[in-house]
């Protein structure tokens, strides 16, 4: 059974200005007894998540909503293990699949097929799993012989179609998605929405951060509203 339990999660990080990153300023600030140090450590601490608690059970579809910078993406990244908690804890049961950057790992100089492998490894698949799926992915993209050409020769639509096909080939128990999935090719819309539906249906838990109400409605998500890094309400 997939399950996520978030308890009193706080994530803070320091954002450094260009000056404090340099070693010179740190050394100077030691030597000058703090006079230059005024702007040497101009790090600002950002509290991206503030004491968030949330229980997500098997079968749940969670939509994270809120303004830009409210903490939605930070929560997704923390669930994915990218950002680390400053306080509190997350317990995760189940395999996790993440879709934050839909083209991570892809290389415009490499061919379509090579990119299926590169992107596949980044999604956490092993060679054997990609071997099994490569035909299905190739077929879905309808790119045909283009798959043997470098991706830099593709149009933007073809590129996103390829990335989409690979990214939706995984079947994790928990799916973490930032800003939705999809691609702008009209002719393709139906085929894509069917694939997205099956992609979501295979997962026991879906957590999605988006501004798009349509997606949230279509999967029947429970919306969790974020403001200033804290979850303030849940709306079914």
């Amino acid at each position: 059974m997939a399950h996520i339990s978030i308890k009193n999660l706080t994530v803070e990080f320091k954002v450094y200005g260009s000056s404090s990153r340099s070693l010179k300023n740190q050394i100077l600030s030691q030597a000058t007894g703090g006079r230059i140090a005024e702007n040497a450590d101009d790090a600002v601490t950002v509290k991206a998540l503030d004491n968030v608690s949330l229980e997500i059970n098997d079968g749940d579809r969670i939509g994270l909503v809120g303004h830009n910078g409210a903490g939605k993406s930070t929560l997704l990244r923390t669930l994915a293990g990218i950002y680390k908690p400053t306080e509190g804890s997350i317990e995760i049961e189940g395999t996790v699949g993440t879709l934050i950057d839909p083209s991570a790992g892809m290389d415009p100089e490499a061919t379509g097929i090579e990119n299926v492998y590169l992107r596949g490894y980044i999604l956490g698949m092993c060679r054997h799993e990609i071997d099994e799926k490569v035909d299905e992915i190739a077929e879905f993209t309808e790119l045909g012989d283009f798959l043997h050409l470098p991706v830099k020769t593709y149009s933007a639509g073809m590129f996103s179609r390829l990335g989409f096909a690979i990214s939706t080939a995984i079947s994790p128990e928990i799916l973490l998605i930032d800003e939705g999935v999809g691609t702008g090719d009209n002719k393709f819309i139906q085929k894509i929405s069917a694939r997205i539906k099956s992609y979501f249906d295979r997962a026991s838990i879906v957590v999605i951060a988006t501004h798009d109400d349509e997606i949230l409605k279509s999967i029947g998500a429970t919306n969790v509203l974020f403001e200033h890094g804290a979850n303030i309400s849940q709306v079914k």
Partner: peptide, 15 residues
């Protein structure tokens, strides 16, 4: 993956 789901604990204490 038919085996039991993997469990993972991410907390400030076990960094």
């Amino acid at each position: 993956k038919l085996l039991e789901s993997p469990k993972k604990l991410i907390s400030a204490e076990n960094l």
